[in-house]
Design a protein around this nucleic acid. Structure first.
Lengths: 96, 96
DNA sequence: TTGTCATATGAAAATATGTTCATATATTTG
DNA sequence: CAAATATATGAACATATTTTCATATGACAA
């Protein structure tokens, strides 16, 4: 029941989201089904290239999906469940 | 509702636990109420000093409590709620 | 005391993450 | 086709995290 490999995998996913900007992206996408990069950029304080790096990496790590439509790329959560981590961590912060 | 500062704080806590060894520690302490460093070390594949660094840092970041009793230091979860993140992330992995 | 056990600490090295900047690519429009 | 828009990429750098090693500290037992 205590499997380091399993925990490493969990850690891999957690690391991929352990960043303020990335959590914001997840929070945005929790509601909106999908958003393109510009829309995300407008809502966040994040420079184009940096945001792109974050999105690309989160996608590579299986957090986000991406779909191109013309000039735009629409990102969405690959697994909505991930938003529960946000609730979870926030309830932890409160109960401190 | 989308507050970067709040997300940064959440990220700070997430970072403090986004590591296989640290998640193992949390998982161990989820059951056992408290364990001393040697007990944790036996159950984990982790060298003394490295484990100590992890524990000290998790403590500094408000994840763990520590109580000394004689030669031993007993660590426990400051907030049991944190274990829900483990369940949470694991259910995310499955549903992939 | 001295030795031993349990744990912590600090510095250095190794590695990973985050950020910036300049530039590339894909798509659409004129 | 050329220009404009949306987004990605790569290299360089800055910063943070992880790991190792040597050593320190605290507590107890002989």
């Amino acid at each position: 029941m205590l499997d380091l490999n399993q925990m490493d995998q969990a850690a891999y996913t957690l690391k991929a989201i352990s960043n303020g900007t990335r959590l914001c992206v997840i929070s945005l996408l929790a509601d909106k089904e999908e958003l393109n990069v510009s829309e995300i950029g407008e809502r966040l304080q994040c420079e184009q290239s940096l945001l792109s790096h974050h999105l690309t990496d989160m996608r590579a790590k299986g957090i986000l999906n991406c779909r191109r439509d013309g000039k735009n790329c629409y990102y969405s959560l690959k697994n909505k469940q991930i938003t529960k981590i946000l609730d979870c961590i926030q309830s932890c912060q409160c109960a401190e």
